[in-house]
Design a binder for these strands. Sequence first.
RNA 1: CGGGAUGUAGCGUAGCCCGGUUAUCGCGCCUGGUUUGGGACCAGGAGGUCGCAAGUUCGAAUCUUGCCAUCCCGACCA
Length: 491
Amino acid sequence: MSKELTSRAEDYSQWYNDLVIKGGLADYSAVRGCMVIKPYGFALWENMRDQLDRMFKDTGHVNAYFPLFIPKSFLSKEAAHVEGFAKECAVVTHYRLMNDPNGKGIIVDPDAKLEEELIVRPTSETIIWNTYKDWIQSYRDLPLLINQWANVVRWEMRTRLFLRTAEFLWQEGHTAHATKEEAVEEAERMLNVYADFVEAYMAVPVIKGIKTASERFAGAENTYCIEALMQDGKALQAGTSHFLGQNFAKAFDVQFLNKENKKEFVWATSWGVSTRLIGALIMAHSDDQGLIMPPKIAPVQVVIVPIYKGEESKVPIDAKANEIIAELKALGISVKYDNSDNSRPGWKFAEYELKGVPVRMAMGLRDMENKVVEVARRDTKEKKSMPMDGLANNIKKLLDDIQQNLYNKALAFRTENITIADSWEDFVKRLDNKGGFISAHWDGTAETEEKIKEQTKATIRCIPLNNKQEAGKCILTGNPSKERVLFARAY
RNA sequence: CGGGAUGUAGCGUAGCCCGGUUAUCGCGCCUGGUUUGGGACCAGGAGGUCGCAAGUUCGAAUCUUGCCAUCCCGACCA
């Protein structure tokens, strides 16, 4: 394995790919546009998933599972929805293979054509609402608060590890409510859950907002989102929560009897975050030495590297290490003890830095005599000796400190990179110079939004929640505007 | 689907322009030994349809044509 990562300044996407691959998270697979998530990357995803799942359950949701395949006719029931997803669907047309009569391997059996094609889900609204029709009759059946952890397929033209793969893992919540107010409240609640998770666990600050009509989810009445800023100045949509109105209820005829014994269509939400969050994590924190994992979701929080001098010193070092490991584990800290003999300490140091393990401890006979260990933190690369006495508690504090420091650093970066533009020239200059979020006036029309996108590649990332109302002039057209919106180039 | 590039051992590569013994080097891997405080060293060893297919030639990794695949930049998108 090559030791150096490509410098960020040189080629950001190469740097990103190196981080993912050399950091041991994932790799390209034999299938175009799909990736293999390696054990280290999957452990990270599991930590994120488990925490999110707890938060969903704390807000009253339960998990279920719906089919991978969606009959083609389901997808077309909601007009905007099919319009949005039709271009990127994988379609199952046959159910059997056969030997090629010409002896050239195996072919699709032409006699095994499906009556109705099946779509591999790009999202599950349709199959779920088709099911909800059977589950909902009365107001007593509401609200219905269900989440599923699943994989989905979107046949993208161009893919990027974690950020945009043909298949990805995610969770999708689908809820049904008796009133519009309740549904809106739910969509906002889940947006807050996402924001809390990303900020508190991933240490990535986000901006909560709503999408403009043209950036809205296909079939939604309103799309809430959290937007994060990456180190190259581009924005990343980290999660979305949709108020679906009664669109899907009407498309799938899901009605309930209210207390007055009158039929009403139910109100819906859906919300999701995906393995893309891992991409956000990488691009928000990593440096030229490799990944940096926030302690709260790091697959390994502490790695201990023993320093041997000859076979006989292994015994006492191993013994002491095991004591320390037991103390750390008692505090719920995940530890890896790497006493493998096939690589030397220096190699291990570099390797765990590449993988982003928050805290590294090195311990040799010298340290044992002095009753200390060498502790190095990944975020600042600061090294110091810490006494064995009270070590576990001090490491716990250190992990908290690293978590906080990562967040502060990312927040400072983002604050620095939200700027205001009041003229078109300034707007374009800021985009080209350092990127970031640019707060500017917009006349509110889709046409202007489109023109800005064409000319600058910048899109409106969101209209921040509780946005300050302020009269101004549109950056492009000069038409009146009542508030600023956030523009950025995005992934 | 447009523009660019690349395909040689598990990974990274040299050789290609100008055809010529047994295809280069590094990492990794295997065996033995010495080592271990920032990517160790010595000795020995295994590993190759040079992306695929045709063609030119006495002879092709190298030249020609076609195909395939991948990556990067666009369009599309979470």
